[in-house]
Amino acid sequence: PPQTPVRAAMNSIAQLRVDLITSGDQPSSNLAVYFKNCTVDPTEEVLQRVESLGLLFSQRFGQAVGPRCVGLGKQVPPGLNTEEKRLSVQNFSKLLNDSTFHTSLLACALEVVMATYGGSTFKNGGYSNGGVPVETDLCFPWILDVFQLTAFDFYKVIESFIKAEPSLSKDIVKHLERCEHLIMETIAWREDSPLFELLKRTREEGPVEQAEPPAT
């Protein structure tokens, strides 16, 4: 039977709940091994960061939607197996101790949850108990502002996140793709973007290889 928008949203929510219940709220044994293989074990720092960013998110989310604040899932998806195969290394100390990587990953996970539950409802105007209008546009790129994360860094995790979570619904993949396009087309080109510094550095280092001659 044809899917109504409500049915599609309900299915996405059901799928997300299954995914979250199946994966639990602790690092998988697989991820724990990667943590142990690191020169500096990032477990404690990851736990602390998830805690502090979780609090930050809850505060801002609470301010935005009013007092009906939601509980927050606490999971860091790994997706490192493909990296191990690709690079033939098991020590991901640098990556797994990188705060920007953690923040981007958590932002991506929260964006998935908000897109699944929120859809268009977060866009509607709202008022707090005191009758004061509250911030209600929680659509992307709101999460970047909450975590003070650059779009350029958020962009880096999108593809790996989708690859690592094959059960994401079609609508959510589409949503992440829209975020990606928005970053590519506008947000990454704003004045304070780290992209410009990177372009400058690449240029100073000189061209790595000759461009291919144009085809006839």
């Binding site: 640098k94 790996s160 993949v173």
Partner: peptide
């Protein structure tokens, strides 16, 4: 139907993307 277009090549991944060296 909808499928995500994967842009990274086989030899690229998240490790390099976060490596600023």
């Amino acid at each position: 139907s909808h499928s995500y277009h994967f842009g990274l090549e086989e030899h690229e991944g998240i490790t390099e993307l976060f490596d600023s060296d």
